[in-house]
Amino acid sequence: MIAEFARRHNPVLKHQFERIKNGNKKRHKLANIAIANKIARYIYSIMKNKSSFVILHDHIMRLPKETRDTFFNSISLDFS
């Protein structure tokens, strides 16, 4: 369920999901499992290193233009 939510609301993971699924209905479950594994690796790394989750600019710039636009429009830059 976490992978499905992340796929819908995170443009970076959505792009990876679409790349793995590649338009094939039968690969939906496979793509969902790949996203769940990626999230698990993120969580493990954050807990192991006691650090924050950071998305690097160069990783975002590798994404297609519409995904980048969605990402940059969805973030807030309100730093306290």
Rank of each mutant, 00 (worst) to 15 (best):
E66W: 10
D69R: 02
T70H: 01
F71C: 02
D58M: 11
P64E: 02
Y42G: 04
S45W: 02
M47D: 07
I75G: 01
F5Q: 10
N49W: 15
I55H: 12
F79G: 12
F71I: 05
E66Y: 10
F72P: 03
S51P: 07
K50W: 07
N24M: 09
N10D: 11
H59Y: 12
N73Y: 14
I39V: 08
I39M: 08
P11D: 01
R8T: 02
Q16E: 05
H57W: 05
R8K: 12
N24I: 15
M47A: 07
N37I: 05
F5W: 15
I33Q: 08
S74P: 01
N32W: 07
F5H: 12
N73I: 08
S45G: 11
S76W: 09
M61H: 08
S74D: 11
R68T: 00
N32T: 10
L63T: 00
S51C: 13
S52E: 12
K26P: 01
R8C: 04
M47E: 10
I35L: 02
N24Y: 07
I35D: 00
S76I: 06
P64L: 10
L77I: 09
I35E: 00
H57M: 07
N37Y: 08
Y44R: 07
E18K: 07
D69Y: 08
Q16F: 15
D78M: 12
K14F: 09
D69S: 06
F72M: 12
N24K: 14
R62G: 01
H59R: 12
I20S: 03
N49Q: 15
P64R: 13
I2A: 14
